[in-house]
């Protein structure tokens, strides 16, 4: 099958599932339900694209297919912020900090964290990306330790409030925040779009890319920042989904055997929409909402990651 046909097929599948979500079992008094569902689906598509875009680019930058940008410690920053908020305000959390404040605070903190990391560790010649990652991971563990200490002290009832924000969920999307998130995401996409061909060069490695006239450092820095923004936005909107990126990128590489980012990125967006739709379908119709999509995705994504690790001959 040609690449074009594959893309068309994927789009059709996506559209089919989308229609199913919108229309299945629609009550007679349909306007309210229809609106609710539209928002949910729009949020799913947005998050899918954020994850797809950031993961493909991240894997290109790190020359590695088993990494995902969320391991840089973003999600533990997010969880820490949420924990601290609940810890400080207890049962008054929702009146003390409104959704919008929480959203932007989370994004700012995650970005601040990422930029600090880059500032100190990503310098022109000594740019060791793996070191950057490991430090991000260790800081992440530190934040997690802090979070879990606070969670230990938090009253179990208040913990339930926290639990809601610690698992990705599309069931309660704030429309206003959605528009903000969408605007930020589109901006990132546009900013990154012009450099897709530069990304193709990055896969040849730093030296070859420089030899071919690419400002390697500038390119990598630009995309690292874009990735951080995207991950921060999608995490702040729906919550953490760590292993989703690894799952969808690798499925995309399998399906589209190409190195061209102009194809890979849109293709991966489609694949991740499809995966999210399926995940949500399972949550709603198999588990009857008795699980969350992030738990399911991390479970499936995690298992797939294991298979990848064991299958790969030389990573």
């Amino acid at each position: 099958m040609s690449i074009k046909n594959k893309l068309i097929l994927l789009s059709l599948l996506c559209l089919g599932l989308l229609a199913f979500f919108l229309l299945f079992d629609l009550p007679t008094n349909w306007t309210y339900a229809f609106e609710k569902r539209s928002i949910k689906i729009a949020a799913m598509i947005m998050v899918a694209c954020c994850v797809a875009y950031s993961s493909v680019v991240f894997q290109t930058l790190t020359a590695n297919r088993i990494l995902t940008p969320s391991i840089m410690g973003f999600e533990s920053v997010y969880v820490l912020i949420q924990t601290v908020i609940v810890f400080l305000y207890g049962d008054k959390t929702f009146t003390a900090v409104n959704d919008k404040e929480n959203f932007f605070l989370s994004i700012l903190m995650m970005l601040g964290f990422a930029l600090l990391l880059f500032r100190f560790l990503f310098r022109k010649e000594k740019s060791n990306l793996y070191l950057l990652l490991l430090i991000g991971l260790v800081l992440g563990t530190l934040f997690r330790t802090l979070s879990s200490f606070l969670q230990l002290i938090i009253d179990p009832n208040e913990f339930l409030m926290l639990q809601g924000s610690m698992f990705a969920s599309f069931n309660s999307i704030n429309l206003e925040l959605f528009w903000y998130a969408l605007a930020i995401m589109l901006l990132c996409f546009v900013l990154g779009f012009r450099g897709f061909r530069n990304l193709d060069l990055v896969i040849l490695g730093r030296e070859n890319a420089i030899s071919l006239g690419l400002d390697y450092f500038k390119t990598v820095r630009l995309y690292l920042i874009l990735i951080s923004v995207l991950v921060a936005v999608s995490t702040a909107l729906v919550g953490p989904i760590t292993f989703f990126g690894i799952l969808v990128t690798n499925l995309t590489y399998e399906l589209f055997k190409t190195y061209k980012h102009a194809i890979l990125i849109p293709a991966c967006c489609l694949v991740s929409c499809l995966a999210l739709f399926c995940g949500q379908l399972v949550v709603e119709h198999v588990f009857n909402f008795n699980s969350t999509i992030s738990v399911i995705i991390n479970f499936v994504g995690g298992l797939y990651f294991m298979v990848l690790l064991l299958k790969v001959k030389k990573v």
């Binding site: 490991l134 991971l137 292993f243 990573v315």
Partner: peptide, 20 residues
């Protein structure tokens, strides 16, 4: 540096299964 990264990710997976 890469092996501990993989190790931490590996731990993350086990954790995600646990949480499931």
């Amino acid at each position: 540096i890469f092996i501990p990264i993989v190790g931490l990710l590996f731990g993350g997976i086990l954790n995600s299964v646990t949480v499931f």
